[in-house]
Design a protein around this nucleic acid. Structure first.
Lengths: 198, 198
DNA sequence: TTGAAAGTTCTCAAAAAGTTCACTACTATT
DNA sequence: AATAGTAGTGAACTTTTTGAGAACTTTCAA
């Protein structure tokens, strides 16, 4: 549990964020709970972070966040695994899954897939795919590739010897394509996929 | 979280748009928050854009827009459709997609699929499926069904004559199962599916 | 086509905020 | 009395943010 001082600091931070919409600086916290030393305030804040009550959104100023609020809005309960012929089996250690956190991220965007060229990878016509912007990818990853600065395509990528690149459609009816590396520009790699029914 | 200065800039822009109906120029922002340097103002604006608080409607002058705080946290840009052999094609009318909104909802939960029984429906082993809790479903919908109050399974459902129910695995190697209706309890229907890579 | 207005990129120096540390003091437990 | 845990102070240090100004590119309308 938290000490009374730690709780005071936590309460002050919550109130400050509530009122100002952004987190207080250490000096402001100090003024709020009547501590002169920024060092002491820092130690309190650090303990709260260690206890998991607070977190820093990133390094920098005024980046403190309360952990508990939020979270709820983008989560769903994760009941467990379903397999044909067995009862639903709980997954130990997980009971909530944050949908947004799984798919969102810096420099990501969404594309709608048209066609069946990735059908064997479980990506169907009209599915949405989440792409992470990057210009490099490892062998075997599914990438958005731009060919001759003109055609865009979603394919599994392999580097071949002799500065050539193989782009594989995951569809047994389509043959792999091989290009010299300088005709292919990688625009992003596949990081997520989603579909809605009904 | 924004710094005080960034917040000042944001507030000024909001007020300016409110009053004038269009966004301010960098110089006007500078005058508003008392910064001489257009470069400095530009840096503030750029950070606000990076943080997702602002966006540019298009390139050009006075094209800043405030992002709806609701959508901010769970949206990704929707660039368009991708099909093999063509440039990425923009989808008119859509430029953002709210991931959370698509998948979340009352009485929904997530299951992790084990096995390949739905592979022809593009649902692979280890995929996550979002299930809407309900005890009825229409023909052709994919449901979580409980058989004899014991086995759980994810199958496509059809009602047959004579109070019988057909459960179809979307896998050409597995035959459909037919049960009397009283041995099958529907627990929910599939409303979403997602997968992450990397 | 052209020029002014607007946006972008850069470097520099300074200010503001966060971090670490040594020292001290109070309290509760052993 | 010794020990450990919690606190506060103040100084030194590092990192991040900031504003200024100059040079450059893009946009837009005459």
């Amino acid at each position: 549990m938290l000490t009374t001082q730690q709780k005071k600091v936590q309460d002050f931070i919550r109130a400050f964020i509530q009122r100002h919409g952004h987190s207080p600086s250490l000096r402001e916290i100090g003024e709020g709970v009547d501590i002169q030393s920024r060092g002491a305030v820092h130690r309190h804040v650090q303990t709260l972070i260690d206890r998991g009550v607070l977190k820093r959104a990133r390094s920098g100023w005024r980046t403190l966040q309360l952990v508990d609020p939020e979270e709820m809005s983008t989560s769903l309960p994760l009941l467990g695994k379903i397999a044909a012929g067995r009862p639903i089996e709980a997954i130990p250690g997980h009971d909530e899954i944050n949908i947004a956190e799984m798919l969102l991220g810096e420099d990501r965007y969404v594309l709608q897939v048209e066609g069946d060229s990735m059908i064997d990878a479980g990506i169907l016509d009209a599915d949405l795919v989440v792409i992470q912007r990057t210009d490099t990818a490892d062998d075997g990853e599914i990438v958005v590739a731009l060919i001759d600065d003109e055609e865009a395509t979603l394919k599994r990528l392999f580097h071949l010897s002799g500065r050539r690149i193989k782009l594989v459609a995951e569809n047994r009816n389509l043959a792999p394509l091989i290009y010299p590396a300088d005709r292919v520009r990688i625009q992003g790699v596949l990081t997520g996929q989603l579909r809605t029914y009904r």
